[in-house]
Design a binder for these strands. Sequence first.
DNA 1: GTTTTAAGTCAGCCTTGTTGACATTCCAAG
DNA 2: CTTGGAATGTCAACAAGGCTGACTTAAAAC
Lengths: 168, 168
Amino acid sequence: MADQSAPPSSESLLFLTDEQLRKGIEAMFFAYRGFTADPDRILEERGYGRAHHRAVHFIHRSPGTTVNNLLSILGVTKQSLNRVLRTLIEDGLVESKVGTKDKRERHLTLTDKGRELERALSDAQRNRMRDAYRKAGPEAVQGFRQVLVAMMDGDMRRHYLALKDAGQ
Amino acid sequence: MADQSAPPSSESLLFLTDEQLRKGIEAMFFAYRGFTADPDRILEERGYGRAHHRAVHFIHRSPGTTVNNLLSILGVTKQSLNRVLRTLIEDGLVESKVGTKDKRERHLTLTDKGRELERALSDAQRNRMRDAYRKAGPEAVQGFRQVLVAMMDGDMRRHYLALKDAGQ
DNA sequence: GTTTTAAGTCAGCCTTGTTGACATTCCAAG
DNA sequence: CTTGGAATGTCAACAAGGCTGACTTAAAAC
């Protein structure tokens, strides 16, 4: 599924100067700032940080996910995640239910309050993304996603592709 | 939400469902991990962090830049930057020279040792970027950059565009 | 001569990452 | 039934790298 598109074999020469690549790197750096700017503002108002955002996002995306699964998606230690998760549970944004089949596992879901925060964050981020897409045009969107996927490490690509997708 | 599986091919109206936007957001998140993974490894070996990388990158990019200019590009406080800059100067990677015209200013340049680190970091990062570009194809590269630029905040876009560019 | 600007420094705080050690629970294999 | 190991949680300590606020020094600007 990863790469079956026509390899640029025949004219596989992309003229990629160091300067062009450098501009790509810098674009990534500056764009990521924009990407996180709106959520950061909302989070700060409510006393949370990016770590909370990430947790809320992926719990929303995969309701009932286990702590271990979340750990491997987020790529942090359980101690680090636990601190964040604990405050979210205490504040009533996340619910942790002991597994029925395997009672060692905890299944995480958002509460109404948690969904409300997720809404606010993802609305802001989607608006930014939509504006960027509109400015760049439909063809750009395709290319954007393709390059990003190609930039991921294998593990992360696997996680990315595993997320429920309502079609490209 | 019934059926949006058809890609909006070359339509000027973008059908941007929440799901599509969400996948873009997640792609950005996972890709940024890949983007920083290689430099992070190199930095760790040498006892530096991403903050050092950013400083070294932009000093290399704009030799002789002042501290104030660097501050506005990086978007951090001078106390934060100073801590990083001090270790780089102590370790002999960066040189700080009093300005000739305005003696309040310090002009920052990389030493040979600094250039060596910058080389290692940017080689790794460019290789990743080049591979991603190759996998995605030439048209994707255009779109990638366009969306990223559109995603930047105004200030950052200004900085980005101001960086010397040896042509697209 | 006063004010403003550029830079540096000190102290302290916060978030979010890390290790390491250890307790608990409980599934599953022997 | 017992035990090993997996999944989770928790405590403590630490580090990087953000932040604010207060303050100094030097030089430029007015």
